[in-house]
Computed example of a mutant assay.
Amino acid sequence: MSQFEKDVKDGLSRSPKYLSSKYFYDKKGDELFVQIMNMPEYYLTRAEFEIFKEQTTEIIESLGVRPDSYFELVELGAGDGTKTKELLKVLVNQGFKFDYVPVDISSNALNQLQSSLKEEMEELSVKIRKGDYFEVLESLKFTNTPKVILFLGSNIGNLEDEQAHQFMNELAAVLNSGDKLLLGVDLIKAEEVVLPAYNDKAGITKAFNLNLLSRINNELDANFDIENFTHQPEYSETTGIAKSFLVSTKAQSVKINGSGTFEFKAGEKIHTEISRKYSDEIIVKITKNTKFRLQEKLQDSKGYFADYILVRD
């Protein structure tokens, strides 16, 4: 039984039901997420892109890298690299000596990124790494080469706060003293700004969420009737947490070959994603006692998004 099948079986056996957001990203999921990032409602990408485009010099200065000192620029969950390219272009043009190491669980995303980078910046040294973040970082740890880690797009927001704290602890453990982390996070803001980003008028986010069921059908020989599920996002300004659910619109049974049959009540939810929004206080909370020290905070012009720069003590 694959890890995917084990996780799906475990998640659908729980009460309430749960599916991990990491399984959104098959080839179709990758394509849909690129569309999501270009939606008018999805402010996150534009806000962080603005920081990378308009404050590139400030980012480089805050990271403390120098043109004459080699370093590795490691990006966790690189995706299509749209924002990162703004930084890469300046580093390349100014003659910095570095390798760009994009890490992703999607071979498709990595191959597309490598191809586009070769076209746009032929002189850039790219070393793609497919796999789990910590496995890849563990393999890089013993080079003793200075590292800058990019973890953008508020991807850390897919974790509960306790999980995020654990993530930061584990990340610190595979880095050396003096290594830097650029952590991009979405900031807490009004519901009328946040909720449409997860429920766009064109229905792309809905298709992205429902595609997870199609993936289970295709890869695990299941018989989800996609028409019998709908997408439901929720957001609380008080907690700063957005959640996405797939909701069964009727009482039904779903069979997954080799894993069994799963019963759904009308209105029953499958929790698929959390998207935590942050404040300075929450950043302090998830980095407390992790050997990371906050050094700098850069924001977009609307104050929607922040890139925190932390140093590993």
Rank of each mutant, 00 (worst) to 15 (best):
Y278Q: 06
L91C: 15
N158W: 07
L63W: 04
G184I: 10
E54W: 03
D26S: 12
S279N: 09
Y198K: 09
T57C: 11
Y23F: 15
D26Q: 13
N155G: 09
E191H: 08
G258S: 12
Y42R: 03
V136L: 00
R66E: 12
T145G: 00
N228A: 13
V92H: 05
E5C: 08
G95K: 05
I36Q: 07
P16R: 15
A266V: 08
L91I: 15
Y278R: 01
I105N: 06
K89P: 02
V90A: 13
K291I: 01
G203Y: 10
A207N: 11
E31P: 08
Y235F: 09
S301G: 03
T290I: 05
Q163Y: 00
L294H: 09
K83R: 05
I283H: 01
A266D: 14
L113I: 04
S21P: 15
E48F: 13
P102L: 08
D221P: 07
A78Q: 12
G11Q: 05
M121H: 02
Y25E: 11
M168G: 03
F224Y: 12
E54S: 14
S13E: 12
L137V: 02
G240E: 11
S301K: 04
H165S: 04
Q232L: 02
A197R: 10
E48Y: 09
A47Y: 02
A251S: 07
S259P: 01
G260C: 06
Y278W: 05
S115M: 08
S115G: 06
L220A: 03
Y133M: 00
N144P: 04
S236R: 08
Q35I: 00
K22Q: 12
S279H: 07
L76D: 08
K201P: 11
N217R: 12
K297E: 06
Y308F: 01
A251H: 02
N38I: 05
E268M: 11
Y25G: 14
S154W: 09
N289R: 14
K118I: 02
E122L: 06
T145L: 01
D104I: 07
A306K: 03
E86K: 12
F96M: 13
I149W: 07
A197E: 10
D68Q: 14
D99V: 10
K53L: 15
V185D: 13
F262Y: 14
S154K: 11
Y70W: 09
F142N: 00
L88T: 14
G81S: 14
H271W: 07
E281A: 15
L213H: 12
E296I: 06
M1D: 01
L12Y: 09
E86C: 10
I59M: 13
V254A: 02
R14D: 04
V8L: 04
N144S: 10
E234W: 06
T145K: 01
A173M: 09
E263N: 11
L91W: 09
S259F: 05
K265G: 06
V101P: 05
T261Y: 11
F305R: 02
P196M: 04
Y304N: 09
L76Q: 14
T145Y: 02
